[in-house]
């Protein structure tokens, strides 16, 4: 592949912004996972904090509500010893007529080092990354239907911890692929890391047109698609994003695509079950599965902190281009 200018990387190929999995190499994704292994150990310390980003300021800019993602980003920044600002933009400045760029300029004037951005529009994090000052890093915490790269990386971390190498794995992603930025990022990450087979299982109405070009085998039947997989990733039915009649009813969806212990029998005996949360119990999966021995859903939350620490530390640590070659010792 011809190397091209990627806004996410600096001139030495290091992470400056983390906006999408698209365009990142296997080496870089593996580096994120390896760094996260190191940060996972921090929670074993009595002082669950490292001084790495002391003096840095992280602003969580959430234009869309979120509990898990925002709180794990906040905890991750705090465990790096950074200071954290939580801004619920939809309720503050923009409601008074301030433009997005004016909001950004004001935060830059407060010497914020990193923006963690969640936005309902696809491409919002890219837009912000293109307009921030050179010392500021932008991390995408979910933009529209486009990408949610830190979620995908915490899922990769969870899979690697349980299953080791990707090259021998079959992974199935089940549910609302159409509205899911998580699924897009997961498929890209799984393929970049060399996963043997990526499957998507969904009704036709919940599949995007381009899913095959992303590199996934399509199944419409859960029993067929789940056969012999090592990892089952369930997606949340995004009721708030659905317009019109994509689904007959939640009850019928569960009848066809809901994960039960019985259906899980078709997967490999040591298969793990994942879900990015929040779970609609009785819609995407049975409580018995969600709370069962194969579920690693709560570990995903724990690992999310380590992965977000890794991404923030990597992005904040790359000094701007004019800093020159540093002297060691």
């Amino acid at each position: 592949m011809i190397p091209q200018y990627d806004i996410q990387l600096d001139d030495r190929g290091r992470l400056r912004h983390f906006l999408t999995i698209d365009g990142l190499s296997r080496r870089l994704l593996t580096e994120i996972l390896d760094q996260a292994e190191g940060f996972a150990g921090v929670s074993e310390q009595r002082v669950k904090k490292v001084p790495l980003c002391r003096g840095k300021t992280v602003a969580n800019l959430f234009f869309e509500t979120s509990t898990r993602t925002r709180t794990t980003f906040e905890l991750a920044a705090k465990r790096l010893s950074a200071d954290v600002l939580n801004l619920n933009i939809s309720l503050s400045a923009t409601a008074k007529g301030e433009t997005l760029l004016d909001t950004l300029r004001n935060l830059e004037a407060m010497h914020v080092d990193t923006f963690v951005v969640r936005h309902p529009d696809s491409g919002a994090a890219h837009f912000i990354a293109r307009h921030v000052a050179p010392h500021v890093s932008v991390i995408n915490a979910g933009d529209g239907r486009h990408a949610h790269p830190t979620q995908a990386m915490l899922d990769m971390f969870t899979i690697r911890r349980h299953k080791g190498r990707f090259s021998s794995l079959r992974v199935a992603i089940v549910g609302d692929i159409l509205h899911s930025r998580v699924a897009r990022s997961q498929i890209l990450a799984l393929n970049t890391l060399g996963t043997a087979e990526v499957r998507v299982i969904a009704p036709r109405t919940l599949l995007p047109a381009d899913v095959r070009t992303l590199g996934a085998h399509v199944f419409h039947d859960l029993a067929e698609g789940i056969r012999d997989v090592d990892v089952v990733i369930m997606l949340r039915l995004q009721k708030e994003r659905m317009r019109g009649a994509l689904l007959p009813s939640e009850h019928e969806y569960f009848q066809l695509y809901g994960l039960t212990e019985e259906r899980l029998q078709a997967a490999r005996p040591d298969a793990i079950v994942m879900h990015p949360g929040p779970i609609n119990r009785g819609v995407e999966m049975d409580s018995q599965v969600a709370d069962g021995p194969r579920s690693v859903i709560l570990q995903q939350v724990t690992y999310g902190i380590a992965v977000r620490m890794a991404v923030m530390a990597m992005a904040m640590g790359a000094p701007p281009r004019d800093a020159g070659e540093p002297q060691d010792e």
Partner: peptide, 9 residues
């Protein structure tokens, strides 16, 4: 860290 970034772990 602020001069050379995060170290390989």
């Amino acid at each position: 860290y602020t001069r050379i970034g995060v170290n390989p772990v």
